[in-house]
């Protein structure tokens, strides 16, 4: 049976906990002098990136290499995609090369789902348009669990450009599965129109939600996806929805600040806040490698994957 990680809503609570527990064991590998395991020797992982990315691509590459898989990096720039090759033809090329897993990032929501119908290997969604980014949500949940313990009943506030955020969508589903209460905070213009089935609350008032949050996750304002004016000025956005040192001071003791990166320092998050002891932003990057190792291990190591949804 062929399974993929396309969306966090495909993950059952047991699947999600299996990934997080596996990652917990794999975190020890990062402390060893030899940070390599022989588990995926001879397997091929293709990183297929149609959109720019630093940390996600490097993170997947490091994760696959630590498990001894062969990694082929493919970016749309400088490939036949710029000559007009279709996604399907690219997929068939990968298929012919015998990819065991394809890690795909694409600007179009749903592209990994299409890809999953064309290739034999497992497809891992590394971000598709404004749809989902499941491994980011998993590493966020892993970071929260390491800092705060069990997520059951924890209150997580996700603030900012929800409309364009695949991170927010993936987090809402995963955190709900894990028992946390999620509140989305955004200007009304940056809240998706149809979100009736999202298992979370929505607020337009950051200051009201702030004192009741165990986790505050700031989202990047995605200028590159904005084709209209969603707020009057950067300064006004920053004043109402930015996390500055004054707001940080009103967060409950022990509450943490997260950001999926890359940050617009001074826009959604102040530099002092990003560099404070409550910020987990650097940990999130470290944990990203660990969680992606867990995902690749569970999808590829056995005769059949232990997690994920079928296409």
């Amino acid at each position: 049976m062929n399974r993929h990680l396309l969306s966090t809503s495909d993950l059952s609570r047991d699947d999600a906990l299996l990934i997080l527990d596996t990652a917990e064991h794999l975190a020890q590998v990062a402390d060893r002098s030899i940070k390599k395991l022989p588990t995926l020797r001879g397997r091929t992982v293709v990183n297929l990136f149609f959109e720019d990315s630093t940390r996600t691509r490097i993170s997947f590459e490091a994760a696959a290499k630590r498990l001894s898989a062969d990694v082929i990096n493919f970016s749309a720039k400088g490939s036949s995609v710029s000559k007009g090759e279709s996604l399907k033809d690219t997929a068939l090329t990968l298929q012919a090369m015998g990819a065991d897993a394809v890690v795909v990032r694409h600007g179009a929501s749903g592209a990994p789902h299409r890809l999953a119908t064309w290739v034999d290997g497992s497809v891992v969604n590394a971000g598709d348009g404004t749809h989902e980014h499941p491994t980011q949500a998993l590493l966020d949940a892993f970071t929260m669990r390491r800092r705060l313990g069990d997520l059951d009943g924890r209150r997580v506030t996700i603030v900012g450009d929800v409309l364009h955020s695949r991170v927010a969508r993936s987090n809402v589903h995963l955190l709900h599965t894990l028992g946390a209460q999620v509140t989305l905070v955004a200007p009304p213009t940056l809240v998706p129109v149809s979100m009736g089935d999202w298992p979370c609350e929505v607020s337009y008032d950051f200051d009201a939600v702030l004192p009741k949050s165990d986790v505050v996750m700031m989202l990047r304002v995605q200028h590159e996806r904005m084709n209209a004016s969603y707020f009057p000025s950067a300064r006004e956005y920053s004043r109402r929805y930015g996390l500055d040192p004054e707001r940080l001071g009103r967060m409950p003791e022990g509450a943490i600040v997260m950001h999926p990166g890359p940050m617009n320092r001074g826009m959604e998050i102040a530099a002092e806040v990003a560099d404070s002891g409550r910020s987990t932003i650097v940990e999130q990057v470290t944990n990203g490698v660990t969680v992606r190792m867990a995902v690749l291990y569970l999808l590829l190591s056995g005769s059949e994957p232990a997690i994920g949804g079928t296409q």
């Binding site: 794999l26 588990t39 056995g302 005769s303 059949e304």
Partner: peptide, 15 residues
């Protein structure tokens, strides 16, 4: 992670 029979069975949890 070092077993030689990993591929004979579904992926397993780590100890």
């Amino acid at each position: 992670m070092y077993r030689d029979d990993l591929r004979l069975k579904p992926a397993r949890a780590l100890g």
